[in-house]
Amino acid sequence: KRPMNAFMVWAKDERRKILQAFPDMHNSNISKILGSRWKSMSNQEKQPYYEEQARLSKIHLEKYPNYK
């Protein structure tokens, strides 16, 4: 399994927050909201998630050096 990208790292927690506020919301609607919110974020706001992506990718590479 591939490591999560920056959007997926961010969306994991955000999806949970949306589901708590709107438990009956369909997954497709949540995904649209998440995509819209991510697009509206500045690069500075996204930076911690890109850093986490890099950390996860490094761990993945160490654990699975032959993964293609």
Rank of each mutant, 00 (worst) to 15 (best):
V9G: 03
L19Y: 02
K1W: 09
I30R: 00
N66C: 07
E52P: 01
M25E: 03
G35E: 14
V9P: 00
Y67I: 12
L19M: 11
K68Y: 08
Q44S: 10
Q20C: 07
D13E: 14
K32H: 08
S57G: 09
Y50D: 03
E62H: 06
A11Q: 04
S40P: 04
D24W: 05
K1V: 08
I59G: 11
G35H: 04
A21E: 15
K46S: 03
I18M: 06
S57V: 08
E62Q: 07
H26T: 14
M8F: 05
A6I: 00
E51A: 12
K32I: 06
M25K: 04
L56G: 08
Y50E: 07
R55G: 04
Q47A: 10
Y64P: 13
G35L: 05
Y67A: 15
N29C: 12
K1N: 13
I59C: 13
Y49F: 11
K68S: 08
I30G: 00
P3M: 06
M4C: 07
N5C: 10
E51L: 04
I30D: 02
K39N: 14
F22V: 07
E45R: 01
M8G: 14
P48L: 04
N66F: 07
I18D: 00
M25P: 01
Y50A: 04
M25W: 02
N43C: 08
L34C: 01
R15L: 14
E45V: 03
S36P: 13
V9K: 02
N43D: 14
Y64C: 13
G35R: 09
Q44A: 14
S28N: 11
E62S: 10
E45G: 01
R16M: 15
W10C: 03
P48Q: 07
K17M: 04
R15T: 11
N27W: 14
M8I: 06
L56V: 08
I30K: 02
R15V: 10
Q44N: 08
R15P: 01
K58E: 14
A21P: 03
P3H: 11
M41Q: 02
I18V: 06
D13W: 00
P65H: 10
N66H: 10
E14W: 14
Q53R: 06
N5T: 15
Y50N: 04
K63V: 07
P65I: 10
P65A: 12
S31P: 05
K17Y: 01
S42E: 04
E51D: 13
D24H: 07
Y64F: 12
E62A: 09
A11W: 05
W38M: 00
S57P: 04
G35C: 11
K17V: 04
K46I: 01
A11P: 00
A21W: 11
V9F: 06
Y49H: 01
H60V: 08
K32A: 10
R15E: 07
P3E: 14
Y64G: 14
R2C: 09
Y50I: 09
W10M: 00
R15H: 05
W38D: 00
P23K: 04
S40H: 15
Q53Y: 14
K17I: 04
L19E: 12
A6N: 02
V9D: 07
R16A: 13
D24S: 02
A6G: 07
E14S: 05
Q44V: 11
P3R: 12
A11H: 00
E14H: 05
I59W: 09
E14Q: 07
L19K: 13
F22N: 15
E14I: 15
E45Q: 07
P23N: 04
K58H: 07
Q53M: 09
D24N: 09
Q44C: 06
A54T: 09
A6S: 04
M8W: 04
S57H: 14
R2W: 04
H26D: 15
L56H: 09
P23D: 03
P48K: 06
Q44D: 14
G35W: 15
K68Q: 11
I18R: 00
P23M: 01
S42I: 07
P23S: 03
W10T: 02
K68A: 12
A54K: 08
M25Q: 02
S42M: 04
E45F: 01
K68N: 13
N5D: 14
S28E: 14
A6M: 01
K46G: 00
Y49P: 08
K12E: 11
Q47V: 08
N29V: 14
S40W: 11
E51C: 03
K39P: 09
A6K: 03
K12S: 10
A11R: 02
M4T: 12
K1L: 07
Y67T: 15
Y64E: 14
F22I: 06
W10G: 01
K63Y: 05
Y50M: 07
V9C: 10
L34S: 00
D13T: 09
H60D: 11
L34Q: 00
R55V: 06
R55W: 02
L56A: 07
D13M: 00
G35T: 15
S36Y: 01
R55H: 06
F22M: 08
Q44H: 09
N5I: 02
I33G: 01
Q20N: 12
N27A: 13
R2A: 09
P3N: 15
K17S: 06
L34P: 00
Y64L: 12
E45T: 01
S40C: 10
Y50F: 11
P65V: 10
A6P: 05
N5G: 07
S28A: 13
K63E: 15
N66D: 13
H26E: 13
P65C: 10
L61C: 13
K68P: 10
A21D: 15
Q20E: 15
E14C: 11
W10D: 02
A21F: 07
M4G: 06
D24T: 04
L19W: 01
L34H: 01
K17N: 07
S28H: 06
N43V: 13
